[in-house]
């Protein structure tokens, strides 16, 4: 029982990291049909930003801007030309992530580096270490921020319109190109923030993003495209499932179990937890 409880903060904090990563993915995927494999590199960029600054409070906004700017450049230079060809964007962005990873290896060296956590994050309340609590708080802030943006601001409402029906949105006078840029910026920025978060629970290396990106995509698949609720539930579920499967079986079987659960889940809900209703034939 104690082991069960002890595992809880680990599962929740992994879920929180996955959530921050998946928030960006689910919107770029849902809105533009872009499978962005370079998203993992944005996580890495955020983590190295934290490494360079060695100051958590400064690192959060800096990582958001750095990763967001990288996303913006990628969207403008490359992805923009490939809309409507999701599988091609997947391969293109993977090429980008290869280049970025090698760049990180050349700039910072191949070995892992460490980011020193601030002293006010050591310790904890009961079984909850402060650093994991901080990550969860970050995820909550991220979700609330995205929710506020999407439902309470004009730009956000326009974003939702583009997610629901791009052509109709464009005919209503929404500049879909600008909305795409903005979505990409925010989504990539959140990946950067997630990168800062993971520096609190592990070392930083050039291949950091690879570790999370596959799971983050599974969150998008299980949660449903462009669905905030879906992303939250799926990320927490996957984080907990991951940590408990690792705990009860062994680490090597955990991913297989998670995979089987996702496939089983898709038998009941093939399009994820929440589906955007539409009459279009896909």
């Amino acid at each position: 029982m104690t082991a069960f409880v002890n595992q809880l903060p680990i599962g929740l904090s992994i879920g929180a990291v996955l959530l921050l990563i998946a928030l960006g993915l689910t919107f770029t995927f849902g809105q533009m049909g872009v499978i962005n494999m370079a998203h993992g590199s944005f996580i890495m960029a955020g983590a190295y930003t934290a490494y360079l600054l060695q100051d958590l409070v400064l690192a959060l906004p800096a990582a958001f801007l750095v990763a967001g700017a990288m996303g913006l450049v990628l969207e403008r230079l490359a992805i923009r030309h490939l809309y409507g060809r999701p599988l091609d964007t997947l391969l293109l962005t993977w090429g980008v992530s290869l280049v970025l990873q090698q760049l990180a290896r050349d700039l910072f060296g191949a070995p892992n580096v460490q980011v020193s956590a601030p002293s006010w994050l050591s310790g904890g309340v009961g079984i909850l270490p402060y650093n994991r609590l901080f990550i969860m708080g970050l995820a909550v802030a991220g979700v609330v921020g995205v929710w506020f943006y999407l439902t309470r601001t004009g730009l956000g409402r326009r974003t939702q319109a583009v997610v629901q029906n791009r052509q109709l949105a464009a005919t209503s006078g929404i500049d879909t190109g600008r909305i795409d840029m903005l979505t990409f910026f925010i989504g990539s920025g959140l990946a950067g923030v997630a990168g800062v978060a993971v520096t609190l629970i592990g070392p930083v290396g050039p291949a950091l993003g690879d570790y999370y990106i596959v799971d983050a995509f599974l969150v998008v698949v299980a949660g449903g495209l462009g669905q905030l609720r879906g992303a939250v539930l799926a990320a927490l579920g996957l984080g907990l499932l991951n940590s408990y499967a690792e705990f009860w079986s062994d680490a090597s079987l955990a991913k297989v179990i998670v995979f089987a659960v996702i496939i089983a889940f898709l038998q009941i809900r093939p399009q994820g937890m929440f589906v955007l209703r539409s009459r279009a034939l896909t």
Binding site: A78, D88, T89, L91, L92, G95, L98, V99, Q102
Partner: peptide, 13 residues
């Protein structure tokens, strides 16, 4: 790795 990455980007676009 640079070359491979660049190659994908060029081929895809």
């Amino acid at each position: 790795l640079y070359l491979q990455g660049a190659l994908f980007i060029l081929v895809m676009t």
